[in-house]
Amino acid sequence: MTLPVPTLDHVVVNVHDGMDAAVETYRRLGFAMTPRGHHTLGSINHLAIFATNYLELIGVPPGTAGRTDILGWPIGLNGLVWGTEDSAALHAALGGAGVSCPPPGEFSRPVELPDGTRDAVFRTVRLPNDTTPAGRLYFCHHLTRDLVWRDEWRHHPNGVVDVAQAVIAAAAPQRLGALFRRMFGDGAVQPIAGGLRLVAGLTSMDVVTPAELARRFGDAAPQGDTRDEYMAALVLRTRSLAQAAGAVQAEGVRREATRLLVPATQTMGVVLQFQE
C-alpha cells in the first residue's frame, strides 16, 4: 500500500533561542514575516507565506530547556513538511505502508486579526526522529487554513511566491529514496545526477551526494559536520530576479544569469537560491 504523493506544505528553519536575530535576518533577505506566534507546545515562530506553501522560522524563548525536538537538532533547515487534509486516514495509510509513526498530535497558536483573536489549529503526523539525521519529516493538517494563508502576508519585497525545491545532502541517497518509495511508490521517485528526486506537487525534494551539493552551490552550501544526511538548500521562485537582488541584504550574495545565491552563513544555516 502506498500513499498519494502530497504537496509540500512548508519548510522549517530551526533557530534555537535566537529568534530575534533570525527574524531580522530574514526581513533583510526580503521576506515579509508574520507577527510572532506562540504555540501551545511552547515554541515560537514567524512565517513567510507564499502562494501554496511557506517558510517557518521555529525556535524557543531564551532560557527554555527540555525542548529536544528543537534544541536537539542543529540550527538550519530542519523540517520538510507535506500537507494532508485527513491526518487520521494518513496515519492509518502510513501504517499500511509499513511506516510506523505516532498518532496525530494537535496544537494551536493565537492569531491576532483586526476583528479579534482566533486560534490557528494544526494536527501533525510525524515520522520518528530517527528516520533521518537530516531533520524532521512530517505531515501537517491545517484545521484553520484561513488563519495561515492570508493575502496580506503573501507579498514579499524579494518577490518570492513559492518554494520550488528543497535539497537534502546524503552520503547514500538511496537510503531515503527507499523510504520515499515505500511511502509513495516507485513512480514518485526519479533518478537524477548525483541522487534522486521526489516530486511533491509543484515542489521537488532532491536527495543528493555532498559532491553534487557542492557542484550546485559551491562554498555557499552549509557544512554537514559529522551527519551522513543533512537538509542543505532551498530554491525559491521569485516573480523577478531583479526584484530579489534589490531586496536581499546580505554578505557574499552571488548574482548569476539565472539565479541569486545567498550563502548559508547569512541565512541561519541553509543556502537560498532565488530564481524566476
Rank of each mutant, 00 (worst) to 15 (best):
G195T: 05
G224A: 07
P6S: 07
F107V: 01
T226G: 11
L3T: 04
A214Y: 15
T64D: 09
R109L: 06
G195N: 02
V235Y: 05
L80K: 00
E112R: 10
V60N: 11
Y138L: 15
L29C: 06
V148P: 05
L213A: 07
D219P: 11
R118P: 03
P61S: 12
H16N: 05
V163I: 11
F217K: 05
A134P: 08
V81Q: 03
I75C: 15
E85A: 14
H91R: 11
G37T: 01
Q165N: 15
F274I: 00
A247D: 08
V253Q: 06
M1T: 10
P128T: 09
R28P: 08
A214G: 14
E85L: 09
E256C: 03
W149L: 01
R28T: 12
E229F: 01
A188I: 00
A247W: 09
P103T: 13
I49E: 00
A51S: 14
G72E: 06
V11I: 11
E56T: 02
T144P: 09
F274P: 02
A245T: 12
R109D: 03
A264Q: 04
G177R: 03
G66V: 13
T265W: 10
G135A: 04
V271L: 01
L261N: 03
G194Q: 05
V11A: 05
T52Q: 10
S43C: 08
T117E: 15
G83H: 14
L47F: 08
L143H: 10
F107D: 00
D9F: 07
P35N: 12
R118N: 05
A89P: 00
R175P: 12
N45C: 03
L234V: 03
L113H: 15
G116S: 06
A257Q: 14
N129K: 12
A51K: 09
S204F: 06
G159N: 01
Q165H: 15
P35H: 07
H156F: 03
V160T: 02
T84Q: 06
T2F: 08
V235E: 14
Y230H: 09
L80S: 01
A178Q: 15
G135N: 04
A32L: 10
L147F: 06
M205V: 15
P74C: 10
L272E: 04
D119P: 00
R182N: 07
D206P: 05
T25C: 15
I75H: 15
P4Q: 00
L47V: 06
L260P: 01
L55M: 10
P35R: 13
A32F: 09
L260C: 04
V253P: 11
A169P: 04
V160S: 00
M205R: 14
F31R: 02
H142K: 06
T25V: 13
R136N: 10
A211P: 03
T209Y: 06
E152G: 14
